[in-house]
């Protein structure tokens, strides 16, 4: 039987401060082990959805439910969501001057271990774990010593996001335009990261504009997202149709 991992029901949400509505009646279910792609024009509210699910305080739901791994997701703090297995790879990863990448990753890994009642890793144990993952993703020791995302190129930032995903092994990873602005090698690294995480237990929600990444990761479902809700769902052929005729054909239909 299929196991529901994320279930969004009749969700309405928007900007917390102004109350401006951005998500309007969204329904989406992702089962364990599935890869979903969400495609939509600029301004459709894709990043708002990603941030809302991750718990950014700037956004708030006005009605509807979001269940994640059996829990009411919207009642959890951002760190609790992350530790429950939700991972958001941000379109613009934040730079944190003064905090080495190494040190940051150690805090993140140990936060999750603490949540799972596992003993925290010491410096040597963590380094061993880190080295193995970093090497696979082409993250150099030099990069790990640098301050997190400070002066990183676009490709390096995305690679770092994939490394974090790899280390944290989320149940559901949301990739918010992780493929934007990447060259072909970096794109391949993202695809490899995704494919490595993807098991019968782990799911992904890929927010993207491009067919390139979807060709490399083969989604189970593609959703066309417009004005805060899904207008059509289907297989990869939807993405191909989109590439040929644009969003217009979906909106007018």
């Amino acid at each position: 039987m299929e196991k529901k991992l994320l279930e969004i029901k009749d969700l309405y949400a928007g900007v917390a401060e102004s109350g401006k509505e951005i998500i309007k009646g969204l329904n989406l279910t992702i089962n364990a082990g599935e890869v979903h792609a969400l495609m939509g024009p600029n301004g459709a509210g894709k990043s708002t959805l990603a941030y809302l699910l991750a718990g950014k305080a700037d956004y708030a739901a006005t009605s509807g439910n979001v269940t994640f791994a059996g829990q009411n997701l919207l009642s959890l703090k951002p760190d609790e969501r992350a530790n429950a297995g939700l991972f958001l790879s941000m379109q613009y990863p934040v730079a944190i001057p003064g905090v080495s990448t190494n040190n940051f990753l150690k805090h993140a890994v140990n936060a999750k271990r603490k949540y799972m009642n596992l003993p925290e890793l010491d410096a040597a144990e963590f380094l061993k774990l880190l080295r193995a993952s970093a090497q696979e993703l082409g993250v150099t020791t030099e990069m790990l010593k640098r301050e997190l995302n400070v002066g990183f190129s676009g490709g390096e930032k995305k690679r770092m996001e994939m490394l974090q995903m790899q280390l944290l092994q989320p149940k559901l990873a949301i990739l918010d335009e992780t493929d934007s602005g990447l060259d072909i090698d970096a794109l391949r690294i993202v695809a490899e990261g995704v494919n490595k995480l993807h098991t019968s237990e782990n799911s992904l929600l890929i927010i993207t504009h491009h067919l390139d990444l979807l060709n490399l990761i083969k989604p189970d479902a593609v959703h066309i997202y417009y004005d805060g809700h899904i207008v059509q769902s289907g297989g990869k052929e939807l993405a191909e149709k989109l590439e040929q005729s644009g969003y217009k054909s979906f909106v007018e239909a």
Binding site: G55, D79, A82, A111
Partner: peptide, 18 residues
């Protein structure tokens, strides 16, 4: 702070790190 929370680090710890 949000970025760190989104990686599982709680608010109090994230503040201390910064």
């Amino acid at each position: 702070l949000f970025y760190m929370q989104a990686r599982g680090i709680n608010m109090a710890e994230a503040r201390q790190i910064l």
